[in-house]
Design a protein around this nucleic acid. Structure first.
Lengths: 180, 180
DNA sequence: ACTTAAATATTGACGTTGTCAACATTACGG
DNA sequence: CCGTAATGTTGACAACGTCAATATTTAAGT
């Protein structure tokens, strides 16, 4: 996903083609800022949920929907965030830090769910990683052109459109943290 | 992830820089063949499981591991398959068809699991999509440099290395199809 | 075997990209 | 107000995808 051009960007801004180099060391540095910016935006939505939604089960579902909707609404950002690999991540500590923080929202909420009465006995780390995997995979699959076709086919029509699939998959995951 | 160059490829093969254009209409056509080839390889591993592993629960876990291990062992192929977006997918029907077939292995196996005594009552389509989401997300997260760091951190050390995480996440998902 | 057509390869070119060096302009703090 | 830092520009380089024109190889038919 390198169809993002520094020169085209400079052109659109109406500035010289090498002007960006006064602000970013190289393309990776610019991409790193985009990645960080995306993570921050995603994090904003999640953090506000941490404060407002007290029920961990509902919060986990809402967190997942924030993630999926972010991928749906800002696919370019999402792709840059997860598909554009930087040469050296150690150079961009801010990005790593905020990614960390975002994942922490998931981890914390999953832990709260597991502490609920009626929760299954699952290794928290496994549940945390599972949650992130599920949500991330769901987001990618629903965003990817080559995969979105499946939900239009016979076996999925009754699921309705994207949002409803996301809701149901998310609900299924949350239920899988509980007994019975 | 367009760090794949037709010219460099031609050079490595020891042939002129425009020679590939005798065999592929354009870069997308070459990429489509790579995507198809990867899908076929992934499909080979999954299809053999369909024949040899009768227990649907164990088979689902093994299918997931085939998927994860494919991403681990052939990350370049995996990225091309899922991150390189073609301009017009309708031009490459073979790729779509084999992708379809691969997903069908998952769908079929999930259905068999849901038909097992002791299975939860879940909408099969939801379980199918969840399975794919989980496995795909898991593969991506374990493959991605910017994310792999998490499994090295304190909260995950006891999970061991990548393979064990994959095993445990996969096991958790399979269990979530069953009651209690 | 020789001709002919198809398949395959090559060279050269065009516009694009990331990046660098050299130079010009603007802005602001002493 | 002057000098330093911030920001901008032009021009160049190698590499890229792609096309047109041309050459070479391969295969088929009489």
């Amino acid at each position: 996903m390198s169809d993002l051009s520094l020169r085209a960007l400079a052109r659109r801004v109406g500035v010289s083609q090498t002007a960006p180099y006064r602000h970013f060391a190289d393309k990776d540095a610019l991409i790193a800022v985009l990645k960080e910016e995306g993570m921050r935006k995603l994090g904003d939505g999640m953090r506000s949920l941490m404060a407002t939604e007290k029920d961990p089960m509902i919060r986990l579902r809402k967190l997942a929907m924030v993630y999926v909707e972010f991928a749906r609404d800002y696919p370019a950002h999402f792709k840059v965030m997860f598909e554009y690999e930087l040469g050296d991540y150690n150079k961009y500590h801010d990005f790593l830090e905020i990614s960390d923080k975002n994942f922490l929202y998931f981890r914390k909420t999953v832990n709260e769910c597991l502490a609920l009465p009626g929760a299954r006995e699952i290794d928290p780390a496994v549940a945390q990683f599972s949650a992130w995997s599920m949500v991330h995979g769901l987001s990618v699959l629903l965003m990817n052109q080559s995969l979105i076709k499946y939900i239009k086919e016979d076996h999925f029509v009754h699921l309705g459109e994207r949002d409803q699939i996301a809701e149901q998959v998310t609900e299924f995951f949350c239920n899988s943290l509980l007994k019975s």
